[in-house]
Amino acid sequence: MLTNIISISLGAILINNFIFSQFLGCCPFLGCSSKVETATGMGLAVVFVMGLASAICWVINEYLLVALHLEFLQTLAFILVIAALVQFVEMFLKKSVPSLYSALGIYLPLITTNCAVLGVVLLNVQNNYNFLESLVYGITGGLGFMLAIVLFASVRERIEFSDYPECFEGFPICLVSAALLALAFMGFSGMKIF
């Protein structure tokens, strides 16, 4: 059991990193990574929502959809759960932890359309994870996302001071540097877990 959890965590953070090897969550990864601080805020919000969404969607899938043979409604049910969850988290934080709420700012509502969140829920179903495994996969997947976005934000802060061809301005140069980071993360793919 413990080895299973460790292998899921290592896999989600390093070997099959959500961004650099599965391409899940690229939009916020490229959109919210111009500063390290905002990237950290976004990363934290994603860890939180991904963990919560994995747990809740597992329960809904197991006791509602599978029990009633409604598996074909998975996509629809999950996206509604995630949207409602994000809305709920937003209201809860606004009331009880206003400091965190103002730090996350506009990133919270944006998480609804982050494909990493829906992706992790669908992958949980696809891999037949049990409740604990789903929860761990959600949280560590979010941590992997956070690692990637914080690293990338630090790279981008340096890009601003360097020279590159004019036509690479904006997104293209970011994508090329993301490619180099992906190359670095490829080194983990040879890692073997017991």
């Binding site: 391409f23 997104f171 293209p172 994508l175 090329v176 993301a178 490619a179 993360f185 490829m186």
Partner: peptide, 20 residues
């Protein structure tokens, strides 16, 4: 390596650069 994630990021970056 072009069929791995590295190639995906690089190709899209180059394509957008050409477009710009």
């Amino acid at each position: 390596i072009m069929t791995l994630p590295f190639g995906g990021f690089l190709t899209l970056g180059l394509l957008i650069a050409v477009m710009q």
